[in-house]
Design a binder for these strands. Structure first.
Length: 573
RNA sequence: GACUCAGUAGCUCAGCUGGUAGAGCACAUCCCUUUUAAGGAUGGGGUCCUGGGUUCGAACCCCAGCUGAGUCACCA
């Protein structure tokens, strides 16, 4: 990269890098730097009268500097937080040679550089716990300026807030917005808490295929890809349910997986094309057992993170303390619309939809119509954790029929803050029934429902060998994390949310410039001056271009040999 | 996909009715031995998102596009 397309601050940092090397300082040293302390621990535990932390070794990023003649203050940030450093010229430069302080620290180091220090803890006159530096070493030079975020009394100045930049350059977001890390640390804690609980029960964590030739287990549009040597299409999984159930057939009595699923659908603040779901299947259980298990799990996660069950989510307080109310879907619809839909036919349901002003079309079957009514009129009412149970059979093709009501299934969804958080059922293990349900899905598909499920013959074969009665549950880890960290956007709980690719500058290649007779060293200069395309040169007068080029060369001290007027005339011809 | 809003220095943002592009922080130079978002002084830094149009003149007005955010639709 030539200096022509760098900002002034980047050029200065690259020059500093070169000067460091001239001084014999390697800006990217290879050897390990063994630290023996964390900033947060020193801040929390240092007490002057105890004389502790008198030989600390710290490493981290310089986040601020205040140079006051022969003494300076800086802040260093490690993964636990920040602490102030006191750096005195004559202490880090014991002899006559003051280069390390005067040149290296004061001039060649910048905010963002990663350094290591040795020294001792002390308290400044203003009362701030700090580290008095005796030795300082550069561990990694930073070539780009960081956004500088300052904070006083909880008030943040010049915060780095641009969503696009925060998501595209999450590394910068994490460096300068420490509270961002917290959501991700909690996310891992959620997963660890769940895993701990499952392992205590003796359930086995497993991995199943992400590339599937039949995308099953859910109703969604998949991503499609292609395997070259098999020459077949493959789909990125939309769920792992059918594979986990095969493992139950195989004799495992409890399996679970934290799985990345992929759905080729819309993106908004609650949907990312790839997202994480935990699915668990336990043999010899039913959905009633699973409800108890689920609420125990959610409560346990809340307690592990916050030590309490009542949490702020947006403008609402949500209490994750179990037990959660259980409301049948028919009750929910009756309560919020006044209609009793039990035993209603498809055309009767369509009428009800019309009266409720719910959009519907002929491709929608009974299940979809009921789903619409619930989604439109009921879902958003369930703010506190609530199990919605006993879904119509048409919308649950993998679920066992209800033991008492044959038109219903033994299914529940856990609703929180008006959103689905978990979905579970007594798994359908009757292979004949399962085949019929798949065939019904095919009918829906033929009617135009592009989300209806495919028939997975191998899965049916597995069921025919016999699957024990089993209950399974899936829970969206991203959504759970949103609730548990009070983030309203899925992008705030994903390190790298999906974004459109960054726009490349629409510019001609070096080769194209060269073939127009322009020497390599001038190509970047021309681009920096705004000539991204060779053709753009033809629209300016050679004389003006010649003057501008020589002027740019001089102004930016590029030290290039100016081209002749004749040469420039040739470029613009 | 529809609508609304936004895009100006490395970052956060001003910029009036269309008249030579501004501030704070950051950066550079000089001075200065415990400062607290801030030590002092001076200075450099811009494709005003892109492309058209209107105009004597556009960061500003109009049209189209790109990117993002929000609302809705679709979707769990």
């Amino acid at each position: 990269m030539s200096t022509a397309e760098l900002s002034e601050q980047e050029v200065i940092r690259r020059n500093s890098l070169a000067k460091l090397r001239e001084l014999g300082i390697e800006p990217y040293p290879a050897e390990e730097f063994p630290v023996n302390a964390k900033t947060a621990v020193i801040k929390a535990e240092f007490e002057p009268e105890k004389q502790n932390f008198q030989e600390v070794v710290l490493a981290g990023r310089i986040m601020s500097r205040r140079i006051m003649g022969k003494a300076s203050f800086a802040e260093i940030q490690d993964d636990s937080g920040r602490i102030q450093l006191y750096i005195n010229r004559d202490e880090i430069c014991a002899g006559e040679d003051k280069t390390l302080y005067n040149d290296v620290f004061k001039k060649l180091l910048d905010i963002g550089d990663i350094i290591g220090v040795k020294g001792f803890a002390f308290t400044t006159q203003v009362g701030e716990k700090s580290v008095h530096v005796k030795e300082l070493v550069l561990l990694s030079k930073s070539l780009r300026p960081l956004p500088i975020v300052k904070e006083k009394d909880g008030k943040v100045y010049d915060a780095f807030t641009d969503m696009e930049q925060r998501y595209r350059q999450r590394y910068v977001d994490l460096v300068v917005n420490p509270q961002v890390k917290d959501a991700f640390i909690k996310r891992t804690k959620i997963v660890n808490t769940m895993r701990e609980m499952f392992n205590e029960h003796g359930y086995l964590e497993v991995e199943t295929p992400i590339l599937q030739s039949i995308p099953g287990g859910a109703a969604a549009r998949p991503f499609i890809t292609h395997h070259n040597s098999l020459n077949i299409p493959l789909y990125l999984r939309i769920a792992n349910e059918l594979y986990l159930k095969r493992l139950i057939v195989g004799g495992f009595e409890g399996v679970y997986e934290f799985a990345k699923d992929f759905r080729n659908e819309g993106m908004d603040r609650t949907h990312n094309p790839e997202f994480t779901v935990m699915e668990i299947y336990v043999a010899y259980k039913d959905y009633k057992w699973m409800m108890n298990f689920t609420e125990e799990m959610v409560e346990r996660v809340a307690l592990a993170l916050h030590g309490k069950t009542e949490l702020q989510v947006g403008d609402k307080m949500i209490d994750f303390k179990r037990p959660y109310p259980r409301v049948t879907m028919y009750e929910a619809i009756k309560e919020h619309t006044g209609y009793d839909i039990a035993g209603k036919s498809e055309s009767e349901l369509r009428e009800i939809c019309d009266k409720l002003e719910i959009e519907n079309d002929p491709t929608m079957g009974k299940g979809k119509l009921i789903d619409e009514i619930f989604g439109e009129k009921c879902e958003h009412h369930y703010i506190q954790p609530t199990f919605i149970i006993d879904y119509p059979v048409e919308m649950s093709p993998l679920t066992k029929k209800h033991r008492e009501h044959p038109e219903l299934t033994e299914r529940f969804e856990l609703m929180v803050n008006g959103k689905e958080l978990a979905n579970a059922y007594s798994e359908l293990n009757d292979p004949i029934d399962q085949r019929e349900r798949f065939e019904d899905q095919m009918t829906l598909s033929e009617k135009g429902d592009d989300e209806a499920m495919f028939i997975d013959q191998d899965f049916l074969r597995a069921l025919e060998y016999g699957m024990p009665p089993t209950s399974g549950m899936g829970i969206g880890i991203d959504r759970l994390t949103m609730f548990m960290t009070n983030n309203l956007s899925i992008q705030d709980v994903l390190f790298f949310p999906q974004m459109k690719p960054e726009k490349k500058a629409d510019a001609d290649s070096d080769e194209k410039f060269e073939s127009a007779g322009i020497p390599g060293e001038w190509i970047e200069v021309l681009r920096k001056m705004g000539f991204k395309k060779v053709d753009a040169l033809k629209e300016v007068k050679a004389g003006k271009l010649f003057n501008d080029l020589c002027g740019y060369n001089k102004k930016n001290k590029l030290g290039l040999q100016n081209p002749s007027m004749e040469e420039v005339t040739g470029w613009t011809a």
